[in-house]
Design a binder for these strands. Structure first.
Length: 296
DNA sequence: CGCCAGGGTAGAC
DNA sequence: GTCTACCATGGC
């Protein structure tokens, strides 16, 4: 287990990790730059400012968020053992872990916010998805810190209270607002219980199946929510970058599996921590893609 | 202008 | 079950 210590507004982590690289992993769309090297984010209704310091991270907030951040950054998890296990079984991943030694997968505290965010991410850019999520967040109550005003993410009940007209006025495009409302109704009606799905005794396959009951939630979106907010580390979200990374690294001279076959291949190969492998493959492929885009 | 952006759905076969 | 048109819009 990673040793850490929470002092007043600081988390001392014995294993240095890169806050900016982790937050920019685009798993949580609600982080933005604040002042100097500080970042601003809203976690479980708490507005906080956070930055990297030597040996850990430092934050400012109106209350003690040590436990919340410990969970968020997965400091309760033996990441060194997981990485050693993956490196031992896969040469390619070993190389990627040397290349990106400080990458972490976040454990987002609000699965509902994550669900809305990834509904918004469909056929969308990362940047505009963030804009859309912040637009929805304005329906939540205000939170303030050091002169900055942001909003807690609205509950399903608050979104339903706002109504179709107000959500439609956000101009999310692609009928996203009605997909969000339908998901909120499923939660209100008890057809979807995200808190239950996050429990350890609910398996990945069950959580994914339940999530896909929502319109606008297919394989990729369901896997993303399962991995980033429901603590299902074997989830393997496949977008065009991950599909390309697998094809390039593992099937250079033959046809790569696709769709469901690709997810099953990944779980067979990477095991219960396929999600870590997924993020390494995604990050590397995206970085290579943006580099070649600059050249070409 | 053309192309792409962390896909999913409904409809046709 | 598999394939396809379509969805809407800003940035480059």
């Amino acid at each position: 287990m990673t040793r850490f210590e929470a002092t007043s507004r600081q988390l001392i982590v014995d294993q240095y990790f890169d806050l900016r690289a982790t937050l920019n992993g685009t798993q949580d769309f609600r982080w933005r730059p604040w002042q100097d090297d500080w970042c601003s984010g809203v976690l479980s209704g708490n507005l906080l400012h956070i930055r990297q310091v030597k040996g850990g991270v430092e934050y400012r907030a109106d209350s003690d968020l040590g436990d919340l951040l410990q969970s968020y950054f997965r400091l309760d998890e033996d990441i060194a053992a997981i990485r050693a296990d993956l490196a031992h079984s896969d040469e390619n991943l070993a190389g990627l872990m040397e290349k990106y030694p400080y990458l972490r997968v976040l454990r987002q505290p609000d699965p509902w916010e994550c669900l809305v965010a990834y509904i918004c991410s469909v056929k969308n850019t990362v940047k505009r998805t963030g804009v859309h999520v912040e637009s929805v967040a304005e329906l939540g109550h205000e939170v303030n810190l050091e002169g900055e005003t942001r909003h807690a993410f609205p509950t399903p009940r608050e979104i339903l209270a706002a109504g179709e007209a107000q959500l439609g006025a956000l101009e999310l495009g692609l009928d996203r607002h009605s997909k969000i409302i339908e998901a909120a109704e499923r939660i209100r009606d008890g057809k979807l219980d995200l808190g239950h799905l996050s429990q350890p005794d609910v398996c990945y396959a069950e959580a994914k199946r339940r999530l896909k009951g929502c319109r606008g939630v297919g394989d990729k979106v369901a896997d993303s929510i399962a991995l980033f907010a429901l603590d299902k580390m074997e989830a393997f979200p496949v977008d065009r970058w991950v599909a390309r990374a697998v094809a390039r690294n593992y099937f250079p001279h033959q046809e790569s599996p696709s769709g469901d076959d690709l997810v099953m291949w990944a779980q067979d190969r990477f095991g219960e921590y396929a999600g870590y492998a997924n993020q390494l493959l995604f990050l590397d492929e995206r970085r290579l893609g943006s580099m070649t885009a600059q050249v070409g």
